[in-house]
Design a protein around this nucleic acid. Structure first.
Lengths: 224, 224
DNA sequence: GGTATAAAACCGACCAGGCGGTTTGTAAAG
DNA sequence: CTTTACAAACCGCCTGGTCGGTTTTATACC
C-alpha cells in the first residue's frame, strides 16, 4: 500500500477509536494511550499522525462538522422546494439527525471543550453564518431563531442525558418544529411578504390551513 | 470557632475554589490539588471534607441545583399571578438567570459530566418533575415543551460558547419566550380549555386576540 | 475553674498509576 | 539511500488518593 493511503488508514483508525472511546467511556477517558490501544496502532503511530492531543480533538471536531455539514446541504436542497425557510428547516433537521447519531459527534464536542474551551470557536464560526442565513430568509427572524434554539435545546439536553422525553415525544417535537404551518409569524417583519420570496409557488403547494397534519417524510425514522 | 462552622467554612472554601477554577481554567483543570491551592486549604483538608473527587463534583452540582431551585420557586410565586403557565415561566426565567450568572453553575455540570456521566442523573430527576408540571398546566403541552427547549437551547449554546447572538438579542428572545400572548396554542389539546384552569381570570387580563401588536419595545431591529 | 482525654479538623509528605509527549529503532515505500 | 510510517521503550509530571502526625475543639472528671 502506498504511503498516503497508509497514513489515511491510520488516521481514520485513530479517529474511529477516539469516537468509540468517547461514546463508550465518556470524554474523560479519551487519552492517547486509550486511542492507541483501541485502534490497534502503537502510541508512536498515533503521535505520528497527530502531533498533539489537541490535534486529535481538532480533527475529531472537523470530521463531525463536515459530516453534519454534508447532511445539512443535502437536506437544504430538498427543503428549498418544500419550505420557504429552507435554511431553518435544514438546521432543525440536522440537529434532529445529530440526536439519533447520538454521542458520536457531539460528544466529541464535549471532550474538546473539556480539554480546551477555545476549540469551540471552530463550530461557532459555522454557526454565525447559519444564523445569519436563517435570519435573512425569515419574515419573523426571532421566531426562526427560537425554533432553531428549541431544536438545539433538545439536542444538547439529550446529549447531556438530561432530556426526560421519550423518543416518540422528541420526534413529535421535531416534527412540529419543522412544520412551518404551525408557526405563524407575528406581523413584526411582514404580514404580507415584502420581498417576493423565490418559493411562494412552492409554498402554495401546501395550502392547508395551518393545523393539518404535516406530510413531511422527515428523513429516516428508526423505530415506529 | 466551633467545629460545625469550621467544617462548613472549609467546605464552602473548597467549593468556591472549585467554581473559580472551573470557570477560569475550564473543567479539565479542576483537580484536587488545584482546589487545595486555590482555597488555601491543604490537600488533606480538602480530602477530609470530600473523601473523593466525585464527592466534590456531586456537592458542586447540588449547590448549584439548590441555588437555581430557590430562584425558580421565588419566581414561581410571582408568576402564578401573571401567567397561566407559571411553571413554564419560572423555568424559562431560571434558564435566563443561569445564562447571566454564566459559567458559575452550569459549567460545573460540564465538569461533572466529564468525570462521570452518571452524575447527570441528579439534575435529570429534577427535570422530569418540572417537565411533568409544565405539561400539566399547559393546554398545548408540546408548545410549552418547545418554549422550554428553546430557552434551554439558548442557555446551553451560550455555555458552550457557541451562541453568536448579542446580549440584547438574547434578552429579546427570552422576553418573547416568556410572553404567553405571543404563543398561541394549536387546537391540539384544547381550543376551549377542557379543564377549567385555576388562572382563567388571570389570563383574561390579556384579552387581545393573539396577534395584536405587542407593546414590548422589541429593542433593536436590524434590517427593514 | 483546671486538667486529662477523646474526637474532629487539618496538614503535608508520600505513593502508584496514568498522562501527554519524546526518543530510539526498524521496516517499508519512494 | 532517503524519507515516511510505524513500533516500543522511556521520561517527567500530574493525578486521585493514603497516611502518620499536629493542632484545634469538645467532653469528662475533679
Amino acid at each position: 500500500m502506498d504511503n498516503p493511503s497508509r497514513s489515511e488508514r491510520s488516521r481514520n483508525a485513530a479517529l474511529d477509536a477516539a469516537i468509540t472511546i468517547v461514546t463508550r467511556d465518556g470524554p474523560g477517558r479519551l487519552t492517547l494511550d486509550a486511542i492507541a490501544r483501541e485502534s490497534g496502532l502503537s502510541k508512536g503511530g498515533v503521535m505520528h499522525q497527530f502531533r498533539t492531543k489537541e490535534a486529535v480533538l481538532r480533527a475529531l471536531l472537523e470530521q463531525q462538522m463536515t459530516h453534519f455539514e454534508e447532511f445539512s446541504t443535502r437536506y437544504l436542497e430538498k427543503a428549498r422546494e418544500t419550505s420557504d425557510q429552507p435554511e431553518l428547516a435544514a438546521q432543525i433537521a440536522t440537529l434532529k439527525e445529530a440526536i439519533s447519531t447520538p454521542r458520536a459527534g457531539a460528544f466529541a464536542l464535549l471532550a474538546a471543550m473539556n480539554a480546551n474551551p477555545e476549540l469551540m470557536a471552530m463550530p461557532r464560526d459555522v454557526d454565525i453564518k447559519k444564523v445569519a442565513l436563517m435570519k435573512a430568509e425569515a419574515c419573523d427572524p426571532d421566531l426562526a431563531l427560537l425554533r432553531w434554539a428549541a431544536a438545539r435545546g433538545l439536542l444538547l439536553s439529550s446529549l447531556f442525558g438530561m432530556l426526560s422525553l421519550t423518543e416518540a415525544e422528541r420526534d413529535r417535537l421535531f416534527e412540529r418544529l419543522l412544520d412551518d404551518s404551525k408557526w405563524t409569524a407575528l406581523e413584526h417583519g411582514a404580514a404580507e411578504p415584502a420581498k417576493p420570496s423565490r418559493t411562494t409557488a412552492a409554498r402554495a403547494a401546501s395550502p392547508r390551513p395551518a393545523g393539518a397534519r404535516s406530510a413531511k417524510p422527515a428523513s429516516a425514522r428508526k423505530r415506529g
